[in-house]
């Protein structure tokens, strides 16, 4: 079934490339030593590429939000209050038990339901909580003059940066889990293929995607 329209795929591939650049350069800035660089790029290069990628990511993010506002894609992110926790638990149980015991996927992918409950929650947290926070704090670090001087005796830059690196860390963790769960399709590579071709491979025995 044709699940991923062109604009989603374009946004997604650009986003993923930028994520990787931002993680590598971000780690370079935070963890380079005095004598040798931990990662391939040095601090100076890392700052430059981090800034450039971050600005492109911000524009790409605005494109993503606009896409979800003005196309029907936004409906996949809507959360219903009822059965929220029980649905999450069902999905979690499937990943940790059911899928090894031949159980059916509790929330198979349809045109009306692209994400399972766990996916939906993690995508909402990543895209609508972590990403705005990392973009805003990042802008603060890019233009330090706009950051509040201090809050309760703590340097504003420190708070901004702690927020930035914490979100960066969570998004990195998100990305690793995201990439791993993407191997849970019909075949390990089918979901990756789907994100390139736009077609989601449906199958009978395990219909997992993330």
């Amino acid at each position: 079934m044709y699940l991923y329209p062109k604009w989603i795929r374009a946004w997604h591939i650009l986003n993923s490339i930028l994520f990787i650049i931002l993680i590598v350069t971000g780690l370079s800035m935070q963890y380079t030593g005095k004598k040798d660089y931990v990662l391939v790029v040095g601090f100076e290069e890392a700052v430059r590429w981090h800034n450039i990628s971050a600005i492109i990511l911000t524009i790409n993010y605005i494109f993503f939000v606009a896409g979800n506002l003005f196309t029907r894609n936004g409906r996949y992110y809507r959360v219903k209050r009822e059965h929220f926790f029980s649905d999450l638990f069902k999905q979690l149980k499937y990943y940790s038990w059911g899928m090894f015991h031949g159980e059916k996927h509790p929330f198979p992918v349809t045109m009306e339901r692209k994400f399972n409950p766990l996916q939906k929650l993690s995508y909402i947290l990543a895209m609508y909580v972590a990403l705005p926070l990392i973009i805003i704090s990042g802008l603060g670090l890019l233009f330090p003059e706009i950051v509040v001087k201090g809050l309760m005796g703590v340097s504003g830059m420190l708070l901004t940066d702690l927020l930035h690196i914490t979100m960066g860390f969570f998004l990195s963790v998100f990305m690793i889990i995201h990439v791993y769960t993407c191997t849970l399709g019909k075949r390990p590579e089918s979901l990756f293929r789907g994100m390139i071709t736009g077609y989601h491979a449906t199958e009978d025995h395990y219909d997992l995607e993330d």
Partner: peptide, 30 residues
């Protein structure tokens, strides 16, 4: 930190430690 914030110089050992634990945990679960 009393005056400035220096990226790369003001890393926090507890946060470093915590992030390694979480990161290791995720890899272990996978």
């Amino acid at each position: 930190l009393n005056q400035s914030y220096v990226i790369g110089a003001n890393r926090n050992e507890y946060l470093n430690f915590m992030s390694l634990i979480i990161f290791g945990g995720i890899l272990a679960v996978i």
